Amino acid sequence: MRGPVGQGSDGPVSVAAFIASQRTEHDVPHAVACRALGVSESWFYKWRDRRPTPRQDRRTKLTDAVRRVFDASGGTYGSPRIGDELREQGWRVSDNTIAQLMADLGLVARAKRRRRGLTRQGKRPAAPDLVKRQFTAPAPDVAWCGDMTEIVTQEGKLYLATVIDLYSRHILGYAMGDRHDAGLVVAALNMAAVTRGGDVAGVIFHSDRGSEGEFN
């Protein structure tokens, strides 16, 4: 599969698992989730029913370990501290891999240090700031916030776009690619919409003004 969603060797399996979870957790039909993510139903069933490889099995166990350490910290550990804990337990894993797994799980540390901003000033006029710089919400799906993070890997830079519910602080959608552009933002929004069952009318989406997402 091509495009921002599902890139990388583990991407198809992750996307297939995400589509399956929407049926279980939110009663979203597989056909609806497949259309939203731009994949065919035959592609989904192929990857859903595929037996896990040793690498995928290791990733599943690592994902469980990341969640355990995060929960044990009371939700305060970010990827560097979780990485330290896991390496002490014998895991050979990088902080970047843990950061990606945390994004997959929707885990955001409460005391997370802000990374270097990636926003580039766009040429178009800024859209109205509907959240008034107040990054909280009184209920789920009132306001979402977009973020873009640069991840350095051995093969080069990757960019992770996320959509976060400002009420729960949970990640509703994400997309990763090697280009820092609006396509990643749109892919992350599509996943967030599927997570919420497709009906997101009236939700405010805020992103910093920049050329990759000139809207809020």
Rank of each mutant, 00 (worst) to 15 (best):
Y45A: 07
L107Q: 07
L86E: 00
M1H: 08
I19Y: 02
D49Y: 10
A31G: 11
K112F: 10
S14T: 08
A65R: 02
R114L: 08
R50F: 08
D147A: 04
R81N: 14
S168M: 00
V131H: 02
H206P: 02
S94C: 03
H180Q: 04
R51M: 09
A20F: 02
V39Q: 01
I98R: 02
D27L: 10
W43V: 03
P80I: 06
T136S: 00
G106E: 05
V66L: 04
V32P: 08
A187L: 08
T119A: 10
A111Y: 15
P52G: 04
P4T: 03
A72S: 14
N96P: 05
D57N: 10
G90A: 01
V108L: 13
D10H: 10
V200Q: 08
F44E: 04
R179Q: 09
T63N: 09
A109V: 15
E41L: 12
Q121L: 07
R48E: 15
G6L: 01
G202S: 04
H180F: 09
K132P: 15
S14P: 14
I171D: 01
V203N: 05
I151Q: 10
L105Y: 13
D10S: 13
A182E: 09
A137Y: 07
T119H: 11
Q100K: 14
L158R: 12
V194P: 15
Y77F: 07
G122C: 03
E155N: 14
M191I: 07
V15C: 00
Q89K: 04
H180I: 15
S14Y: 09
S40E: 01
M148T: 14
R196P: 13
V15Q: 01
G183P: 12
N216H: 07
D95A: 03
R48A: 06
V32Y: 09
E150A: 07
R87L: 08
D64M: 06
Y159G: 04
F44S: 02
T97I: 08
V108H: 15
D141G: 11
D147C: 01
A175M: 01
G156L: 01
A188H: 07
S73I: 13
L86K: 00
P29S: 04
K157F: 05
M102P: 13
V203L: 03
P12Y: 02
A127S: 14
F18M: 01
D95R: 05
H170W: 12
Q100S: 11
